[in-house]
């Protein structure tokens, strides 16, 4: 399925150089030369895959459906990975030990976003943060809400805010966002290893 686009690409200025696409000689095909030329086409492509996320992600998502966050430990370094992908990227060995993590976390760093990249009506600006979940050793990204955006700081303690139990699925979307949990900030020195 293709269709031509109506928008004519803007002409560009080619810098002085030694080669550009040569002019074509259409003298033998005047009836084609005399009509408007096709300059571009649309090529619609659709492929469908039967996607499987693998064993470790399945374990993680089955747990998240039960409102649990589960990481997996590297047997060599002891570091806990979340979300787990089945292999420790440091040792190259399978992560077979599952570790129950807390449902709270700490802001490691963040940015304030002024465009809606989420596709649903967010308040703008909003805060996207690197959050170190309690018990894990690698931060994940998450939205921070229920606090003015200009009050978010590294070290801020957060709780995860979940969808209703009836809406829980095997999906990251179960966590709607993160919000301050009221605990004192974690000193920056304790977060130095996580950025």
């Amino acid at each position: 399925m293709t269709d031509t686009t109506s928008s004519e690409p803007a002409p560009i200025e080619i810098p002085e150089g030694v080669w550009s696409q040569p002019e074509v000689d259409m003298s033998a095909i005047e009836e084609i030369a005399s009509v408007e030329s096709v300059r571009s086409v649309r090529a619609f492509a659709s492929l469908t895959y039967d996607y499987t996320p693998g064993l470790a992600t399945t374990r993680f998502l089955r747990a998240i459906k039960e409102k649990r966050l589960v990481g997996e430990r590297c047997s060599e370094t002891g570091k806990v990975y979340v979300p787990p992908r089945g292999v420790s990227p440091v040792s190259g060995m399978p992560t077979t030990e599952q570790v129950d993590l807390g449902l709270d976390g700490t802001v490691v760093s963040f940015c304030v976003v002024n465009l809606d990249f989420t596709g649903n009506a967010q308040e703008i600006p909003y805060v996207s943060a690197l959050i170190l979940v309690d018990g894990s050793d690698i931060p994940i990204y998450g939205l921070v809400r229920e606090i003015p955006y200009n009050e978010v700081q590294p070290g801020l303690r957060l709780k995860s805010v979940w969808v209703e139990d009836s809406e829980m699925t095997t999906s990251f979307e179960n966590i709607k966002w993160w919000a301050p949990n009221g605990e004192p900030d974690v000193p920056a020195s304790e977060l130095a290893d996580y950025v």
Partner: peptide, 9 residues
Amino acid sequence: TVNEVELIQ
């Protein structure tokens, strides 16, 4: 049952 990294590891 496995993703690519679990397949090749």
